[in-house]
């Protein structure tokens, strides 16, 4: 599943605080199937989230998003989150998003420019995220070229497949 980094993403914002953990995002111990997870993701912070989230929404959070285990945030994609925009992200959560080509952006200061329920625009090509209602914007951090390449090819899984096929065809 590839996605184009350079396509502008626009959506309604769900705001969260600092150090949102993977047990909250992906409480797999309690809900082992994706169908159940979808009904419970993020409820430990905002019980209404799994009920009211809509495809195309954007999740904005503070620093250290996705701290905790190595579990991925696939469920966020499944409930329709179009992008995650954070002050900072835990390294393993970031690795997960890169390897699955799930849109995540680091934009220090983002919490200050947008309120819960407002619209946010993510413009990777321009290197910024902005609040179209107020005009306020902050810069987002660009990824190194190898990471952009992994995103663009649809994640590390696709990368692995192509590399294996190329090696074995020889």
């Amino acid at each position: 599943m590839s996605f184009d980094l350079n396509q502008v993403i626009r959506g309604r914002v769900w705001k969260f605080g600092d150090s949102v953990d993977t047990d909250a995002i992906n409480p797999y111990y309690l809900y082992p199937t994706m169908e159940e997870l979808k009904k419970h993701t993020m409820e430990s912070y905002r019980p209404e989230f799994p009920k009211e989230v809509k495809p195309g929404d954007i999740l904005v959070a503070g620093r250290n998003f996705g701290c905790g285990s190595s579990r991925p945030g696939l469920v966020l994609r499944e409930v329709g989150i179009a992008a995650v925009v954070v002050e900072s992200v835990s390294r393993l959560f970031l690795r997960n998003n890169i390897s699955r080509a799930m849109p995540i952006f680091m934009a220090p200061g983002v919490s200050g420019i947008v309120k819960d329920g407002e619209t946010l625009e993510v413009d990777y090509a321009q290197g910024l995220v902005r609040n179209p209602a107020t005009g306020a914007s902050v810069a987002l951090r660009k990824f190194p070229p190898l990471i952009e390449k992994i995103f663009q090819s649809g994640g590390l899984l696709e990368f692995a497949r192509q590399r294996y096929l190329a090696e074995t065809a020889r």
Partner: peptide, 28 residues
Amino acid sequence: DSHTISYGALNVGSTGISRVDTLYVLLF
């Protein structure tokens, strides 16, 4: 698993990676 980092206690450069990363490592 995130706590793979534990072997740093023994001076091992160890760290947790994602499942897709794991698949990549197992292959290559």
